[in-house]
Protein backbone atom coordinates (compact mmCIF):
# COMPACT_ATOMS: atom_id res chain seq x y z
CA UNK A 1 0.00 0.00 0.00
CA UNK A 2 1.14 3.48 -0.73
CA UNK A 3 -0.08 5.97 1.79
CA UNK A 4 1.97 8.95 0.63
CA UNK A 5 -0.62 9.40 -2.09
CA UNK A 6 -2.81 11.05 0.50
CA UNK A 7 -0.51 14.02 0.63
CA UNK A 8 -1.96 14.86 -2.71
CA UNK A 9 -5.51 13.65 -2.27
CA UNK A 10 -6.01 14.29 1.43
CA UNK A 11 -7.47 17.80 1.16
CA UNK A 12 -9.88 16.68 -1.55
CA UNK A 13 -11.06 13.75 0.53
CA UNK A 14 -11.53 15.98 3.54
CA UNK A 15 -13.63 18.35 1.49
CA UNK A 16 -15.63 15.36 0.30
CA UNK A 17 -16.18 14.27 3.86
CA UNK A 18 -17.36 17.77 4.69
CA UNK A 19 -19.93 17.58 1.92
CA UNK A 20 -20.99 14.12 3.15
CA UNK A 21 -21.56 15.44 6.65
CA UNK A 22 -23.45 18.44 5.30
CA UNK A 23 -25.71 16.26 3.14
CA UNK A 24 -26.33 13.85 5.97
CA UNK A 25 -27.04 16.57 8.49
CA UNK A 26 -29.45 18.56 6.34
CA UNK A 27 -31.01 15.43 4.85
CA UNK A 28 -31.62 14.01 8.31
CA UNK A 29 -32.99 17.21 9.79
CA UNK A 30 -35.32 17.85 6.85
CA UNK A 31 -36.53 14.28 6.49
CA UNK A 32 -37.10 14.03 10.22
CA UNK A 33 -39.15 17.22 10.14
CA UNK A 34 -41.12 16.02 7.13
CA UNK A 35 -41.59 12.63 8.78
CA UNK A 36 -42.96 14.30 11.89
CA UNK A 37 -45.45 16.30 9.84
CA UNK A 38 -46.49 13.12 8.01
CA UNK A 39 -46.94 11.24 11.28
CA UNK A 40 -49.12 14.02 12.69
CA UNK A 41 -51.21 14.11 9.52
CA UNK A 42 -51.58 10.33 9.73
CA UNK A 43 -52.81 10.65 13.28
CA UNK A 44 -55.16 13.60 13.00
CA UNK A 45 -56.11 14.36 9.40
CA UNK A 46 -59.33 13.16 7.73
CA UNK A 47 -59.26 9.92 5.80
CA UNK A 48 -58.67 11.14 2.19
CA UNK A 49 -55.55 13.04 3.18
CA UNK A 50 -54.34 10.03 5.14
CA UNK A 51 -54.76 7.80 2.08
CA UNK A 52 -52.73 10.21 -0.08
CA UNK A 53 -49.97 10.22 2.47
CA UNK A 54 -50.11 6.43 2.67
CA UNK A 55 -49.62 6.19 -1.09
CA UNK A 56 -46.60 8.49 -0.81
CA UNK A 57 -45.18 6.29 1.92
CA UNK A 58 -45.70 3.10 -0.09
CA UNK A 59 -44.08 4.53 -3.22
CA UNK A 60 -41.02 5.92 -1.49
CA UNK A 61 -40.49 2.87 0.69
CA UNK A 62 -41.11 0.52 -2.21
CA UNK A 63 -38.47 1.89 -4.57
CA UNK A 64 -34.66 2.10 -4.35
CA UNK A 65 -33.11 5.40 -3.35
CA UNK A 66 -30.92 5.27 -6.44
CA UNK A 67 -33.97 5.26 -8.70
CA UNK A 68 -35.64 8.08 -6.77
CA UNK A 69 -32.52 10.15 -7.10
CA UNK A 70 -32.31 9.57 -10.86
CA UNK A 71 -35.95 10.49 -11.30
CA UNK A 72 -35.50 13.63 -9.23
CA UNK A 73 -32.27 14.83 -10.83
CA UNK A 74 -32.75 13.80 -14.45
CA UNK A 75 -36.54 13.73 -14.56
CA UNK A 76 -37.08 16.86 -12.46
CA UNK A 77 -36.18 19.32 -15.27
CA UNK A 78 -39.01 17.81 -17.36
CA UNK A 79 -41.46 19.29 -14.89
CA UNK A 80 -39.43 22.44 -14.34
CA UNK A 81 -37.59 21.26 -11.24
CA UNK A 82 -34.04 22.13 -12.17
CA UNK A 83 -31.68 21.67 -9.25
CA UNK A 84 -27.95 21.62 -8.80
CA UNK A 85 -26.52 18.32 -7.69
CA UNK A 86 -26.07 19.28 -4.05
CA UNK A 87 -29.59 20.59 -3.36
CA UNK A 88 -31.03 17.75 -5.43
CA UNK A 89 -29.11 15.29 -3.28
CA UNK A 90 -30.33 16.85 -0.05
CA UNK A 91 -33.90 16.97 -1.33
CA UNK A 92 -33.55 13.33 -2.41
CA UNK A 93 -32.39 12.30 1.06
CA UNK A 94 -35.26 14.27 2.58
CA UNK A 95 -37.86 12.54 0.45
CA UNK A 96 -36.28 9.14 0.88
CA UNK A 97 -35.96 9.31 4.65
CA UNK A 98 -39.30 10.92 5.47
CA UNK A 99 -41.58 7.85 5.35
CA UNK A 100 -39.22 5.88 7.56
CA UNK A 101 -39.06 8.70 10.06
CA UNK A 102 -42.85 9.03 9.85
CA UNK A 103 -43.25 5.39 10.82
CA UNK A 104 -40.80 5.81 13.69
CA UNK A 105 -42.74 8.81 14.99
CA UNK A 106 -46.02 6.96 14.56
CA UNK A 107 -44.84 4.09 16.72
CA UNK A 108 -43.46 6.60 19.23
CA UNK A 109 -46.85 8.27 19.49
CA UNK A 110 -48.54 4.92 19.90
CA UNK A 111 -46.28 4.19 22.85
CA UNK A 112 -47.77 7.13 24.76
CA UNK A 113 -50.41 5.58 27.02
CA UNK A 114 -53.91 6.65 26.00
CA UNK A 115 -54.70 7.31 29.66
CA UNK A 116 -52.17 10.15 29.79
CA UNK A 117 -53.84 11.78 26.82
CA UNK A 118 -57.27 11.22 28.33
CA UNK A 119 -56.08 12.84 31.55
CA UNK A 120 -55.24 15.94 29.53
CA UNK A 121 -58.59 15.86 27.73
CA UNK A 122 -60.38 15.42 31.03
CA UNK A 123 -59.09 18.75 32.36
CA UNK A 124 -60.18 20.45 29.16
CA UNK A 125 -56.86 20.72 27.35
CA UNK A 126 -57.14 21.37 23.61
CA UNK A 127 -55.74 18.87 21.09
CA UNK A 128 -52.95 21.18 19.84
CA UNK A 129 -51.84 21.73 23.43
CA UNK A 130 -52.00 17.99 24.09
CA UNK A 131 -49.79 17.39 21.06
CA UNK A 132 -47.29 20.02 22.16
CA UNK A 133 -47.18 19.27 25.87
CA UNK A 134 -47.90 15.54 26.17
CA UNK A 135 -47.78 13.63 22.89
CA UNK A 136 -44.62 15.14 21.42
CA UNK A 137 -42.37 15.07 24.50
CA UNK A 138 -43.34 11.54 25.45
CA UNK A 139 -43.59 10.21 21.90
CA UNK A 140 -40.20 11.62 20.93
CA UNK A 141 -38.53 10.00 23.89
CA UNK A 142 -40.00 6.63 22.92
CA UNK A 143 -38.94 7.14 19.34
CA UNK A 144 -35.43 8.37 20.08
CA UNK A 145 -33.45 5.10 19.80
CA UNK A 146 -35.09 4.32 16.45
CA UNK A 147 -34.58 7.90 15.25
CA UNK A 148 -30.88 7.69 15.98
CA UNK A 149 -30.67 4.28 14.37
CA UNK A 150 -32.25 5.46 11.15
CA UNK A 151 -30.09 8.60 11.14
CA UNK A 152 -27.10 6.29 11.18
CA UNK A 153 -28.49 4.30 8.26
CA UNK A 154 -28.91 7.56 6.36
CA UNK A 155 -25.17 8.40 6.68
CA UNK A 156 -24.46 5.51 4.39
CA UNK A 157 -27.14 6.41 1.89
CA UNK A 158 -25.23 9.61 1.16
CA UNK A 159 -22.72 7.65 -0.94
CA UNK A 160 -25.43 7.21 -3.56
CA UNK A 161 -25.38 10.96 -4.11
CA UNK A 162 -22.09 10.45 -5.96
CA UNK A 163 -24.16 9.06 -8.85
CA UNK A 164 -25.61 12.50 -9.52
CA UNK A 165 -22.16 14.11 -9.09
CA UNK A 166 -22.56 15.55 -5.62
CA UNK A 167 -18.90 16.05 -4.62
CA UNK A 168 -19.17 14.07 -1.42
CA UNK A 169 -16.71 11.54 -0.07
CA UNK A 170 -17.68 8.61 -2.31
CA UNK A 171 -17.42 10.83 -5.35
CA UNK A 172 -13.92 11.98 -4.37
CA UNK A 173 -12.86 8.45 -3.53
CA UNK A 174 -14.01 7.27 -6.94
CA UNK A 175 -12.11 10.10 -8.58
CA UNK A 176 -8.96 9.30 -6.68
CA UNK A 177 -9.34 5.62 -7.49
CA UNK A 178 -9.67 6.12 -11.19
CA UNK A 179 -6.81 8.59 -11.28
CA UNK A 180 -4.39 6.53 -9.22
CA UNK A 181 -5.75 2.97 -9.27
CA UNK A 182 -5.44 2.98 -5.48
CA UNK A 183 -8.89 1.50 -4.96
CA UNK A 184 -8.14 -0.26 -1.71
CA UNK A 185 -6.49 2.67 0.03
CA UNK A 186 -9.15 5.09 -1.09
CA UNK A 187 -12.00 2.89 0.06
CA UNK A 188 -10.33 2.13 3.37
CA UNK A 189 -10.14 5.85 4.00
CA UNK A 190 -13.81 6.11 3.14
CA UNK A 191 -14.62 3.34 5.60
CA UNK A 192 -12.62 5.10 8.31
CA UNK A 193 -14.42 8.39 7.78
CA UNK A 194 -17.82 6.71 7.93
CA UNK A 195 -16.89 4.78 11.01
CA UNK A 196 -15.87 8.05 12.67
CA UNK A 197 -19.14 9.72 11.72
CA UNK A 198 -21.33 6.82 12.83
CA UNK A 199 -19.46 6.40 16.09
CA UNK A 200 -19.88 10.09 16.86
CA UNK A 201 -23.61 9.99 16.11
CA UNK A 202 -24.20 6.93 18.23
CA UNK A 203 -22.26 8.40 21.17
CA UNK A 204 -24.15 11.66 21.02
CA UNK A 205 -27.35 9.65 20.64
CA UNK A 206 -26.67 7.58 23.73
CA UNK A 207 -25.91 10.69 25.78
CA UNK A 208 -29.10 12.30 24.59
CA UNK A 209 -31.10 9.18 25.33
CA UNK A 210 -29.92 8.85 28.90
CA UNK A 211 -30.57 12.56 29.40
CA UNK A 212 -34.16 12.55 28.24
CA UNK A 213 -35.13 9.29 29.91
CA UNK A 214 -33.69 10.08 33.30
CA UNK A 215 -37.11 10.73 34.84
CA UNK A 216 -38.95 8.14 32.81
CA UNK A 217 -37.21 4.95 33.80
CA UNK A 218 -37.46 3.01 37.02
CA UNK A 219 -34.32 3.28 39.08
CA UNK A 220 -32.48 -0.06 38.84
Amino acid sequence: MEWQIFEQYGPMLLRGFGVTVLCWLLGTVFSMALGLVIALIQRYAPAPLRWLIQIYIEIIRGTPFLVQLFVLYYGGPLIGLRLDALPAGILGLTVYGSPYFAEIFRSGFRAVPLGQIEAARAIGMSEPTIIRRILLPLGLVSALPALINFSIILTKETVILSIITVPELMYQVNRMSTETFRYLEANLVLALFFWLLVETISRVGRRLESRVTRHLLERP
Partner: peptide, 13 residues
Protein backbone atom coordinates in the same frame (compact mmCIF):
# COMPACT_ATOMS: atom_id res chain seq x y z
CA UNK B 1 -65.26 18.17 35.97
CA UNK B 2 -62.31 16.54 37.70
CA UNK B 3 -61.37 12.99 36.85
CA UNK B 4 -59.17 10.50 38.63
CA UNK B 5 -58.13 7.30 36.86
CA UNK B 6 -57.30 3.81 38.01
CA UNK B 7 -53.81 4.08 36.49
CA UNK B 8 -53.24 7.64 37.83
CA UNK B 9 -52.19 8.79 34.35
CA UNK B 10 -49.78 11.40 35.60
CA UNK B 11 -47.54 12.84 32.92
CA UNK B 12 -44.21 11.13 33.60
CA UNK B 13 -42.02 13.88 32.12
Amino acid sequence: IGMVFQQFNLWPH
